[in-house]
């Protein structure tokens, strides 16, 4: 047992998986000597060599494109895109190839690749360094989209993503990298991809969040407990796609109300799919419309205005109160 922050926990997952499987490679910009700009790949090159931990030239499309080739050959590349805002330069490789190769080749090939990307705001960063763009990947059939919320589940989900035979987009909230430490057992753990967790039980309303927004949801639930005396059930999605509809529906059948929180803009975001899935599975249990607390439908606003854009505890509490009062 050791207390690790998310950076150390992710680093440990990479160490453990690379020790376990010689086919696992790490590839990206500055991932070798520098250990990644957030140090998630720290020391890996020293341990596993520069053939396995590759400081690639600066080209996102070729990082993913060559990793597709490695995966076609049977290797398991773990790619780092330095910030999710730069992934549009490899989006075609992700959508056209990572997601489709199994289908296109009718099962002859599959792409066991992991694409790690730091995402989200809260770190006073520039444009393209602060956005939340999970919705693009969650919409693509053939991909899996994972967003951990803390050190321990980050380590276990990254291990699961590396062992997964399908391409996994793995979002790491920058604001969580050093936010908190958590007890993590020494031996490696694997959590199932596609499974949400009930982070806190309750009966008044289902509050759904993921990544950096889980903490906001939990703090809002604290406020509601202390000030309103209501027990809000908080669900940590962990995987955006494939979406764990069963857990969401089971919770809302119990609570009758739901609020979704995400950092991505509102329209056509994960909240819409979550709301539709709840309507499908728990329509007759619903006592109120499903509310979404999200970033606004605006491009990057600059970190000086970020707090007004990204959901915070007061906005979530207000949305929950409105939903409870409906």
């Amino acid at each position: 047992m050791a207390k690790l922050n998310m950076v150390k926990a992710l680093n440990q997952a990479l160490f453990q998986e690379m020790e376990r499987d010689g086919d696992v490679l790490v590839l990206g910009e500055d991932v070798g000597v520098d250990g990644g700009v957030f140090r998630v790949t720290d020391d890996l090159q020293r341990k596993f060599g520069s053939q396995r931990v590759i400081d690639s030239p600066l080209a996102e499309a070729a990082i993913i494109g060559t990793a597709v080739g490695m995966a076609l050959y049977g290797l398991k590349p773990v790619c780092e895109i330095q910030f999710s805002g730069f992934a549009f330069q490899c989006f075609h490789q992700i959508e056209n190839h990572c997601a489709r190769y199994r289908m296109r080749s009718q099962g002859r090939f599959h792409i066991p690749i992991v694409i790690r990307m730091p995402y989200g705001g809260g770190v006073r960063a520039l444009e393209h360094h602060s956005e939340s763009e999970e919705q693009f990947y969650a919409h693509i059939p053939g991909l899996k989209m994972v967003v951990p919320s803390g050190p321990r589940n980050a380590r276990a989900l990254l291990a699961a993503a590396i062992r997964d035979p399908d391409p996994v987009i793995f979002f790491e909230a920058k604001s969580l990298y050093h936010a908190a430490k958590e007890e993590v057992p020494d031996e490696s753990e694997v959590m199932p991809i596609g499974r949400a967790q009930v982070a806190r039980e309750g009966d008044a309303l289902t509050l759904i969040g993921y990544g950096a927004m889980l903490r906001v949801a939990l703090e809002a639930a604290d406020v509601l407990r202390d000030e309103d005396g209501v027990a809000v059930e908080v669900i940590d999605l962990l995987t955006i796609s494939p979406l764990d509809r069963e857990t969401l529906v089971a919770s809302v059948r119990k609570t009758g109300r739901a609020v979704v929180v995400h950092e991505a803009p509102k329209s056509f975001g994960p909240g819409a799919e979550i709301a539709a899935s709840i309507m499908d599975g728990a329509f007759l249990s619903l006592e109120a419309p499903i509310r979404r607390v999200t970033a606004h439908d605006v491009p990057f606003v600059g970190f000086a205005r970020e707090k007004a854009n990204v959901p915070d505890v007061p906005r979530v509490v207000a949305a929950v109160r409105e939903t409870l009062a409906f």
């Binding site: 490679l25 053939q51 396995r52 499309a61 070729a62 993913i64 494109g65 060559t66 990793a67 597709v68 080739g69 490695m70 995966a71 076609l72 050959y73 049977g74 290797l75 590349p77 075609h92 490789q93 056209n96 190839h97």
Partner: peptide, 17 residues
């Protein structure tokens, strides 16, 4: 042209193995 990085990755993997 999107297949060209795949060729490079295949060759890298072959060399790695």
């Amino acid at each position: 042209a999107t297949q060209l990085p795949h060729a490079v990755g295949l060759a890298y993997a072959a060399q790695y193995r």
